[in-house]
Design a protein around this nucleic acid. Structure first.
Length: 225
DNA sequence: GTCCAGGGTTCGT
DNA sequence: ACGAACCATGGA
C-alpha cells in the first residue's frame, strides 16, 4: 500500500466545515432524548424520512414500550404494527429485535458502553440489518464515540465539489474525513465527537437546503471561493 | 401520479 | 466483485 498523500480534499474539509457551521449554525443532532431512543431511531431511519421515524417512535412511547426488556419480549408482528409509519415495518421489526436482543444479552446500554470502540463496531456490524452507516450512527450519536458517519449526502456533496472520485469505499471515505479534520480539531481544541456530529448533520442540512429544493441551486454556501 | 427519504440484505451475473 | 430487486410509508 502506498502511503496516503495529503490531498486537496484533506486540506479543504476543515474549511468546508467552518463555512457550513457559519451559515447554518449548530444542528443539535440527534433529535432524541435517550440513548435507547437514538439506537432505535438509527434503524428506523434507514432509507426513510425522519418525520416518519418520529411517528413510529411516538407510537412506542405512547405504548410505554421504550424499554429494552419490554421491546425484547414483543412478538415481531406486534412491533411491526407499532413502527408501521417508518416503512419497511416487517423488515425493521426483525432488525430492531436482533439489535435489541444483542443489547440485552450483553447487559444493556450502560454495560456495552464500557467496550472499546473497535470492538463495539465489530459487534454492531455482526447484528442482522446493521450496516456501516447505522453502526456508526449508533457509535457517534448514542455512544459518543469519535466516528464520522458517511452517508449518501457525504458522497454526493464531496463528489460535486470534486474532492473525491465517488467510487471510494465506505471505510476509505470515513478515514479520509476523520484524518482530514484532525488538524482542525487540534487547532480549535474541539472534541472530535462534537465536530463529527455537527459536520454530518450540516452536510445533510446543505443537501436538503440546496440543489434539491431550489432548481438553480443558487447561493450554495460552498460555491464562492 | 411520480419521486424519494439520515440503508442493508439477498440473489443473479 | 458488482448490479438489481426487494422492503413500504408519507410528504412534496
Amino acid at each position: 500500500m502506498p502511503a496516503e498523500q495529503p490531498t486537496a480534499a484533506a486540506s479543504e474539509l476543515g474549511n468546508i466545515y467552518q463555512r457550513l457551521y457559519q451559515t447554518f449554525g449548530p444542528q443539535h443532532w440527534w433529535p432524541a432524548r435517550t440513548r435507547l431512543e437514538v439506537i432505535i431511531g438509527a434503524v428506523l431511519t434507514q432509507n426513510t424520512a425522519w418525520q416518519n421515524v418520529e411517528k413510529a417512535i411516538a407510537n412506542l412511547k405512547k405504548s410505554g414500550l421504550l424499554n429494552l426488556n419490554r421491546l425484547c419480549s414483543l412478538p415481531p408482528h406486534q412491533l411491526a404494527a407499532l413502527i408501521r409509519p417508518a416503512g419497511y415495518y416487517n423488515l425493521k421489526s426483525r432488525r430492531l429485535l436482533a439489535l435489541l436482543h444483542w443489547l440485552k444479552k450483553n447487559g444493556g446500554i450502560s454495560k456495552i458502553s464500557t467496550l472499546p470502540t473497535a470492538q463495539l463496531r465489530e459487534n454492531l456490524l455482526n447484528c442482522y440489518g446493521i450496516g456501516p452507516e447505522t453502526a456508526d450512527s449508533i457509535l457517534l450519536y448514542a455512544l459518543d464515540r469519535p466516528v464520522f458517519v458517511v452517508d449518501a449526502y457525504t458522497r454526493r456533496i464531496l463528489s460535486r465539489y470534486g474532492l473525491i472520485t465517488g467510487d471510494e469505499s465506505y471505510e476509505q471515505l470515513r478515514l479520509l474525513i476523520e484524518n482530514s479534520l484532525a488538524p482542525f480539531l487540534s487547532d480549535k481544541q474541539e472534541p472530535a465527537v462534537r465536530v463529527y456530529n455537527e459536520f454530518h448533520a450540516l452536510l445533510v442540512k446543505l443537501a436538503k437546503t440546496h440543489c434539491r429544493s431550489k432548481p438553480s441551486c443558487s447561493g450554495c454556501p460552498l460555491d464562492s471561493r
